[in-house]
Design a binder for these strands. Structure first.
Lengths: 255, 255
DNA sequence: CGCTTTATTGATCTTCATCAAAGAGCGTGG
DNA sequence: CCACGCTCTTTGATGAAGATCAATAAAGCG
């Protein structure tokens, strides 16, 4: 067969983000729907777009006053080093998600803040603008502020819930839960419908759950033998979603 | 000696919340500072105060459209049942903290949502108003909305960070971290400066970290022998904060 | 002064981390 | 196109942390 390998799918070389595409992305952002026409124009004017290949850090140093970023294509991870050789990935942002990145000291809202790290997990296109510019727009548009507020609390709340769930689960349940979550965040791929469409090493997975990559590897091997998942170097494909869902729910009603 | 026992301190019978105290509490809420005079008035008018003894659930059923609540005195916990006999406490709110509680379905922001449970951890006084009433006030006061937004994202972000930290720590480190966090949220007591001033069973502590109460009990016994903590039925006193802080930081720079 | 809730302690068993060594996938440069 | 090196992965052996189970004890409450 000549369908592409997962590796090829995860490493596209191009990232289209023409001005028209950019504009339509901006207009269709959920929180922009209710904005006044003039703030819509301001947003379209202020956003720059940036094509990024996999593994790029989005440096906070270039934006001393903070950064407002929207993922137009691809996926990025938000993580934090907890010591010299260990990091924790605590959120994954995909198309339409946004972040407000800033120094903890600087005034105004920030959803992720230095020293968190943000980097791409696949070829991505990111729309960015200075955080202060966004704040200026918000000040004159209460509706826009409101939608942003709604969405921010919604996203943070659900991240919270996710982390809380993880606390009380076994490694196997954690992994099932995490894969389902990541799949929910992904756009389905034509050739591999269960493929999680960004680079995801065993170490990444492990660091989202606070377990080791060896454990992840062992669990995925076991599942692979049962035909539940399929995985390789830097990618994971879920074959039997229901199995994962059951694995997870079952244990909830057990005991 | 005739100083009261921890148990007596944690179970006060009275909860003063006279109209004047209530008003001063409202005025001094961090996010209200920037409010317009008229929205300040509206808030003072709409808030009801409610005295609650320890262990009271704040029922969401009485507020189908959601509830905006501010802790004026005491402490409340936000938790969730993960199965029939296990729950996870994922936030503790003390004086000045607020919550926006609502059905997941209903529009607008909510920071905790049904089926989360909210209940008091000591004799408390809670200021409440319907969530929709708050939203009405916010609509006419962009500054107030902004401050609320800032504080909401700040609090949710820090809750997130806290949960993330917990993921990568050992049980002992988790406990040290948690006690320091709880202590930071507490008002110091005159008689016992390190006493965490609300009811806190070993099971509660355990369920904030995803470990078992037996482990908590063993750890606290060990610390008690070293003079680091002191604890009893439903309360914990931290004697040597620095020890806990070291325990925690040390391991970060190790490895 | 019993009853309930909460805590302690010990014995045992699982799960998962750690360490180590070898192997595979992918990019690169000759 | 092949060989090399790098990163990511697999697998096994071992040990330690912490869960589970169970029995007992205390503390607070009516």
């Amino acid at each position: 067969m000549d369908r592409p390998t997962p590796h090829e799918i995860l490493n596209p070389t191009v990232c289209h983000c023409s001005p028209e595409i950019r504009k339509s992305k901006i207009i269709n952002l959920p929180f922009v729907r209710q904005a006044l026409p003039r703030s819509m124009d301001a947003l379209i004017r202020c956003f720059r777009s940036e094509g990024l290949t996999e593994g790029r850090d989005i440096s906070s140093l270039r934006y001393p006053e903070g950064l407002f970023g929207v993922v137009a294509r691809g996926a990025i991870k938000v993580y934090q080093w907890v010591n010299d050789d260990q990091f924790v990935i605590f959120d994954v942002l995909t198309e339409g998600d946004w972040f407000l990145y800033g120094n903890p000291g600087c005034s105004g809202p920030h959803i992720y803040c230095y020293p968190d790290q943000i980097s791409t997990m696949t070829t991505s296109c990111l729309l960015t603008m200075d955080r202060v510019k966004l704040l200026q727009v918000l000040e004159t548009d209460a509706k826009l502020m409101e939608s942003l507020f709604f969405e921010a609390t919604r996203r943070l709340t659900s991240a919270n819930q996710r982390l809380v769930r993880l606390l009380s689960l076994s490694a196997e349940q954690k992994l099932a839960f995490l894969l389902l979550f990541l799949l929910g965040k992904s756009k389905r791929q034509a050739e591999y419908s269960g493929l999680i469409p960004f680079k995801l090493t065993k170490k990444d997975l492990a660091s989202m759950m606070g377990i080791t990559l060896e454990t992840v590897s062992r669990l995925l091997s076991a599942w692979e033998a049962e035909g539940v998942t399929h995985s390789g170097r830097g990618w994971v494909e879920v074959i039997d979603e229901d199995f994962l869902r059951k694995k997870f729910h079952l244990s909830e009603s057990l005991d």
